[in-house]
Design a protein around this nucleic acid. Sequence first.
RNA 1: CGGAGUGUGGCUCAGUCUGGUAGAGCACCGCGUUCGGGACGCGGGGGUCGCAGGUUCGAAUCCUGCCACUCCGACCA
Length: 438
Amino acid sequence: MRLSRYFLPTLKETPSEAQIVSHRLMLRAGLIRQEAAGIYAWLPLGLRVLKRIEQIVREEQERAGAVEILMPTIQLADLWRESGRYDAYGPEMLRIVDRHKRDMLYGPTAEEVVTDIFRGFVKSYRDLPLNLFNIQWKFRDEQRPRFGVMRGREFLMKDAYSFDVDEVGARKSYNRMFVAYLNTFSRLGLKAVPMRADTGPIGGDLSHEFIILADTGESQVFCDRRLVDMPAPGPDVDWNDLQSIVDQRTALYAATDEMHEADRFDAEVGEGDRLTARGIEVGHIFYFGTKYSKPMKAIVAGPDGKDVPVHMGSYGVGVSRLIGAIIEASHDDAGIIWPEAVAPFDVGIINLRPNDEAVSAACEDAWAKLKAAGKTVLYDDRDDRPGGKFATADLIGLPWQLIIGPKGVADGVVELKRRATGERETLPLDAALQKLTA
RNA sequence: CGGAGUGUGGCUCAGUCUGGUAGAGCACCGCGUUCGGGACGCGGGGGUCGCAGGUUCGAAUCCUGCCACUCCGACCA
């Protein structure tokens, strides 16, 4: 992409409403624009990141056996009356009346809809287990939106819903999502720690929040330090038996504020391993049994021919929130530092003299070769001073910067800068390309 | 929802207390000089000061109401 013809409205100064670093950087780097409290338009660069995160989440869901669908944003109030949640949900639900005076709502979550879909088609335990997920915009009319996309009212969420004939099966489904989440966050360059979470009225131990440790996190968390650096299981696991992997993680202490038990923490975790930190919740999984299947009559025939309500679980990832979380975890004074897996472009080419034919020719040449190697490129061909270009490049945080100017062209070299480390190298173009495509 | 605060060109902000008809820097347009870490000179364009009402000869400035946004706290992917 040629920057002179792109739409990248960066800001030199920080808009006054942004308090935390990820929000400031998202506005300054031209990723988003606020349209109302907690409601954002996604600009080209931000949208590219959002799509990449979404794709990684999708791939890991599918690897774990979940099947993608797309449910509507607008739902019928009647479904929520069936589950008993219509009155319970409160003012966070955006309620809408259509022209026929029918009560509708903008979905804050989709248990009711997915249960309705399920019961419409699935009648036998033979069709289980089933896990349906979708990546769709949700709306929760938060009392106090803040922190940019970390706590917006409208947000993109991946929500998966598992259906099993009994609790044993449901636990297996739960474990699949548990491992899928570990792999997902790892691919996104994040260290996410699963922590025991409140299960509500259902009880049991099957609810975990996945927390990214960051100084600006919204909640206080307590965990065994060894959990933080535990590597993700990866794709090559026995997806039919994940219990040992899950046990390995859940054996170590990890809890958010509301679930924290100080005496247990002290007793179970060695002094050197005790970690008290701030965290950002990026995922939440739980098993809720027959909470929806019973009132909504999502029933299948069991092996014995008797009807049983299905056991369900739901599994959420805040896709749009993840962008904020990634920036919180990966930035410096100059701007964002994108992990390679989610960067909006792989490489930024900086043309230091767009009016110099030889320099521009060298840039075009490098661009063509990078494209041929499958790299995405943002080519800064603007007629600007170098200082501004460097500042923009650091701000938007592409993993690599290929800097091409008259001096280098005369000497037959370019400068290659790695954003994460700031490390620079002057070398021939071919060597630089080799490094970039290695 | 309780508490606090802010609304003045695209952005950051001054002017409001002590009413007199809107200003700076950045950004933008033109010309020129520049050009390896957000340059400089000259010349321009753009706002009626969140909205409505009131007081006054006169309101960004005073009064009333409303709206929006932000921050702190309680709640959530």
